[in-house]
Amino acid sequence: MFFIIKIFVFFRRESKLFFTNITDLFSNIVFFFLSIFIFVFALGTDEQLLKTIGVGIIWSLLLLSSILSLRKFYEEDFNNGILVIIHMSGISYELLVFLKIISHFLFVQLPFLISLPIVSIFFNLPTNEVYNLIITFFIGSLILSCLGSISASMNLLNKTNFSLGGIVVLLFSIPLIIFSVGINNAESELIYLINLLIGIALIFLGIAPWSSAAFIKLAISNK
């Protein structure tokens, strides 16, 4: 019972922080839109071309704009020591990372869902592709949150080379991109591919808490 209260309190704090920092989220979304515009400026307005490469562009830019929000994942909580306080209240670092991933998924990634239908209008995507995009993003953003947790916790240790965290996210998101974009081109059943994506998400949900917690413990003991 008390444990559930603790988790509830944690999420209440995260949601309050989210609403105080809501401009950050909007600036990420604006970054996403602007980069799409820039892509279209670079490629020209050939409708057929935009239709064929639309989903790929949207996914790559989603990935890049999600890297922007990574620095805030743990840094503030780590610097002011609240991670230790939360840990001392009886939550292991692994569970803490898991909760953080869920809150990042809810408060940072999911709001991007609103922007997806609007962006698909720009590319004249057919309706079924928009549905696929939304479904894959729903699962894929969970994977992105896990990767973000790994790279952000790695960056806690590293005060000079910030691009390293971004590299890690990009590297491990290769399967995600392949399956998410590939769903539209595949002849096979959609449901199998979605199951595959869910499987990858579960694998990352297994790896991320363990490795992030290890990085956080290292960072705390070497502060």
């Binding site: 491990f172 290769i174 399967p175 392949i178 399956f179 590939g182 081109n185 694998i203």
Partner: peptide
């Protein structure tokens, strides 16, 4: 995972 997904992407 990467190997498998790249294989699949390649056949695609």
């Amino acid at each position: 995972i990467i190997k498998f997904s790249v294989d699949w992407w390649n056949t695609l």
